[in-house]
Amino acid sequence: MRLSRAWPAALLLVLVASPFFSFNPFYQRVAALVALAAISASAWNVIGGYAGQVSFGHSVYFGVGAYAALLVFTKLGLPPIAGAPLGILASLAISVIAGLPTFRLHGHYFSMATFAIAALAELLIINWNFAGGAIGMMGPATARSPADLLFRSALPYYAIFLAVLAVLLWLTHRMQRSRMGFYLRAIGAGERAAQSLGVPIRRYKLYALLLSGAFTALAGSLYAVMIGFIDPDSGFGVLISVNMVVMAALGGAGTLFGPLVGAVILVPLSEASNAILGGGSSGAAYVAYGVIIMLIARFCPGGLAEWWRVLTRTRRRRAA
C-alpha cells in the first residue's frame, strides 16, 4: 500500500529530472514547453478549475506578458525578461477592468464573454502597428548580456520554467488548504449557497483572477524570452486559451496536479505531430482538441484525476 503511493512520486521525479540527463535536444525542448504549458494551465486552473469560472480568454494575459517582454526589448533595448513585471502589472489591471463586469455572468455566458474579450484583444493587436501589427516582433538575435537569457540549449529554460511552476504549485497547494481554496471551490459548486454562508463571491473571484492572470502573463513573458518571436496568433490566438482549458480538463480541473498531467500528455503529442506534419497544423490541433473535449465530457468529466481517485480507492479497499 505504501508502495502504491510512492511509485507515482518516484516516477514524477524521474520524469522531471530526465531532461538533465538526456542529450536529445528535441526531448529537452519538449520538456521546456511542457513546463511552460503547465505554468499557464495551472494558472488558469485557479479561476477556471477551483472557482469553476471557465475562462476562454486567458490568451489575453499570455499575450500581454509576451508582448511586454518584446516591447521592452524593441522599444527600450532592455532584456526581454524585464518586461515580465510590466506584463504582470498589466494583467492585474485587466483582471480588475475585465473581471468585475464579467463576474456578473454565469456559466456559459461568462465563458462566452471572456472569449469575446480575447477575440477583440487579438483584433486590436493586429491593428496596433507600434507593436508590430500583424507581423509581430523579434527578440534579440544574439545575447548582449546574460540577462537576455539567450541559450542555445533548451535546458536552462526548462530549469527556469520548472522553478516558476514549482512556486505556482506551492502557492496553489497553500491556497487549496486555506480559506481561499474552500471559498473558491464553494463558489464553483454553488454560488448561491456560498454567498449565504458569508462568502463575498465577487471579491474572491477577483483574488483568483488576479493570481491566475499574473502567472499566465508571466508564462507569456517566458515564452517570448525562449522563442524570441511573437505575433498576434502566437500571443493572443484562441488556441492559447483552448490549450489551457483542455490541459486542465484532461488532467483534472480543480486539482493541484491535473493541469501538469494534462500538459505532460498533450504537449509532446502536439510537438510530435508538428514535427511529423510540419508546423502550421493548427487546423489538426482544433480537431484533436474538439475530440478530446468530447471524450472528457462523455467519459470522465473530472478528468484523469477522477480515474486516478477511483483506481486508488478500489485498490485501497482491496488491500484493506
Partner: peptide
C-alpha cells in the same frame, strides 16, 4: 447575502444546494 451572514443571519434552501465537489 454575505453581509447578512456576517451579521449573523443564516438560512437553508427549500431545495438543498450542497457543494457536491466536497
Amino acid at each position: 447575502p454575505a453581509a447578512h451572514a456576517r451579521l449573523g443571519l443564516a438560512r437553508t434552501f427549500q431545495v438543498p444546494i450542497v457543494f457536491d465537489t466536497m
